[in-house]
Design a protein around this nucleic acid. Structure first.
Lengths: 232, 232
DNA sequence: AAGGTAAGTGTATTTTGTACACTTAACCAA
DNA sequence: TTGGTTAAGTGTACAAAATACACTTACCTT
């Protein structure tokens, strides 16, 4: 049995992933049958259930889509432009994914950082409609999702430096060069290797493992992990 | 005629003011008739109207309460704990101010900075129920408003330093010492006068006037204003 | 064994933040 | 008018943080 949903309150999730080269965002895709064969995308999201906390709802959306839990997830802004749904009322393809009411929907937006390898869209119910897209090549999205994505990116950039959350996008074991490349990509600037290492070695819970990179044609790098449980 | 409201979506405003000595917050007060004569307070807020943007709704709440417009207003968090209203369902005094439904209400919280002198609560419809309260002496509030107030304070503190928004709490003409005292109060630490001036003189649009303080028994201070339109 | 590749490391310089004390201008009272 | 009181206004020396910069090392490949 399906829980009852609040008809005009949704959460939307901007899910970021990193494949070693590009910063990507997980979008829901659907072919527009009616007009052309043009593909349109939207952020994953859903109406909030009647007895559900907002954070719970966002985690549910994430889990339903990716089958993973305990993900870095942060609320960053509520959007309530009254025309945000009506504008696209005629595009009813999204109704198949979310049960949209006629009236305006307020959405509370979250951004999320996942290890892209953990996400197996093929296993999820939305498999056919899910796609990782390079954030630099995202086409115009449904509703006001372009605006939401932009806000998410801005917030992520500023929190990347203040909170050092980059490793959330990497596999559990990673090298410092991987982390640096990620920072360079997100902040869109080249960083000095020695200075970068100085700065990130200040952060807690980042510990070197007794293990090195394998299968590379050069000096193998030290592997690190982020271990929040580490006592001091 | 009253506009139609969305039954489970509200905005709440944490309105900060500064009287030269204390940081205050504007609260709605009502005597509990039923139990004792104990006074209880809540943040000003209201349900969002059906065709209203969230920012508009927050501005409306502010205007209805204070009769002023064009105020510094910033959304900082949505709160959606499903028990946030039910917990206090038995206290029906607040129903007289806001039309609360039985079910859970999501609230989008804003904080606002006003020149306390501009606010004449006596002129507003809520005059009898409105009070400026020292943030250090706020009693337990209705619903989850304590939590919301705490979040607002944290956000304000961090944005005070990153965005230099302190003057929003001061009269249009102010001295640098007034600004410094405000910073010291909000950040809860003593600041060095010369270093403070060095740092704030970096910020744009802060310009000295051809005018000095009057009516003080010491050397009168230079008056400044914040002028965002100033070309450079 | 030699060449290719990215890993790993320290120091000097610049910029920013912090600590600190005396002179000035107005008011007031004698 | 003069001397006392009050807060305004101002610069420099030191410490800390951020930045710029180049060579050696370890593993893989041929």
């Amino acid at each position: 049995m399906v829980s009852q949903k609040i008809p005009n309150l949704s959460v939307d999730c901007v899910i970021f992933g990193y494949n070693g080269k590009e910063l990507k965002v997980l979008l829901i895709e659907q072919k527009k049958i009616s007009e052309q064969l043009k593909t349109q995308y939207a952020l994953p999201g859903d109406l909030v259930e009647i007895d559900e906390d907002l954070d719970e709802a966002a985690n549910r959306v994430l889990f339903e889509l990716t089958n993973i839990k305990d993900i870095y997830l942060e609320q960053f802004q509520a959007f309530g432009n009254p025309v945000r749904v009506k504008e696209q009322k005629d595009s009813d393809w999204l109704r198949s994914i979310r049960e949209f009411p006629e009236e305006r929907v307020i959405t509370v937006a979250y951004y999320s950082l996942v290890n892209i390898e953990d996400v197996a869209p093929k296993g999820s119910a939305f498999a056919d409609h899910t796609e990782w897209i390079n954030v630099k090549k995202v086409p115009p999205l449904a509703f006001d999702h372009d605006q939401i994505l932009n806000h998410a990116l801005q917030r992520f950039r500023s929190e990347l430096v203040t909170k050092n959350i980059g490793f959330e996008l990497l596999p559990p074991k990673f090298t410092l060069s991987q982390l640096q490349q990620l920072h360079e990509l997100v902040l869109d600037k080249k960083l000095d290797k020695r200075n970068f290492r100085k700065s990130i070695k200040k952060i807690d819970h980042l510990e070197p493992l007794d293990e090195k990179q394998t299968g590379v044609d050069h000096k193998p790098a030290q592997l690190y992990r982020f271990n929040p449980k580490k006592e001091d």
